[in-house]
């Protein structure tokens, strides 16, 4: 049941999309302004889902989950401008984390990947803000956003690392891991 193609290609991605949507709703409830007075700084909780998807699923599926999450989140609240910002940040973060993931366990842990992803997310958002607002002044925020992304990236990366052992004990995760090693050995 939980190791069939239906689970892998439909049920699990759908669950992850809804989980990411829930996390982005949760993170909207509290702002980090008290910690670091930078407007637009968020904890990046949905990034935990992207991390997990990149680790456990094919990159194509992880990308699908990310795009669906961004589109649905902007439909539920935020509108078109929210879509531009979340997609620009999310896609750049995705590319960076996807590029770094092969190094996981070889000197790099999920925490470092998460920090790089959070930094890329902020850079992507500022690039979008540059286009939307038409002024390079937005880059004045970059140092503060990068500083914040170290903290938020470490926090979300640590959250992912903390829950991974529990995930690895679940039967469906074990089935996914088996499949992954099998497809790797087929390729190799």
């Amino acid at each position: 049941m939980h190791d069939g193609p239906l689970f892998r290609r439909l049920t699990l991605p759908a669950l992850l999309v809804s989980l990411a949507l829930m996390l982005s709703a949760v993170e909207r409830l509290f702002s980090l302004d008290l910690l670091l007075p930078v407007p637009g700084l968020r904890l990046g909780l949905p990034n935990i889902v992207t991390l997990f998807a990149l680790w456990a699923l094919p990159a194509k599926t992880a990308l699908l989950i990310l795009v669906l999450r961004c589109v649905l989140a902007s439909l539920f609240g935020g509108g078109a401008s929210a879509l531009i910002f979340s997609l620009s940040g999310g896609l750049l973060a995705f590319v960076v984390m996807w590029a770094l993931f092969p190094l996981e366990g070889k000197g790099l842990s999920a925490a470092g990947i998460s920090v790089a992803g959070a930094a890329a997310h902020n850079v992507g958002q500022l690039l979008a803000a540059r286009v939307v607002m038409g002024t390079a002044a937005v880059f004045g925020y970059l140092p503060f956003l990068l500083l914040g992304s170290v903290l938020t990236g470490l926090a979300t990366g640590a959250a992912f690392l903390a829950m991974r052992p529990a995930l690895l004990r679940t039967p469906w995760m074990q089935a996914l891991q088996r499949e992954k090693t099998q497809s790797r050995s087929k390729k190799g």
Binding site: L103, G105, K106, G107, L108, S109, A111, G112, I113, V115, A116, A119, F139, L142, P143, F144, L146, L147, S149, V150, G153, L154
Partner: peptide, 21 residues
């Protein structure tokens, strides 16, 4: 050895932040 890359990533991001500052 396991987290050396992480330290590098964090330092790179902090360095970029300092540079842009």
């Amino acid at each position: 050895r396991w987290i050396r890359g992480d330290v590098l990533v964090v330092l790179a991001v902090l360095g970029a932040a300092a540079l842009f500052f």
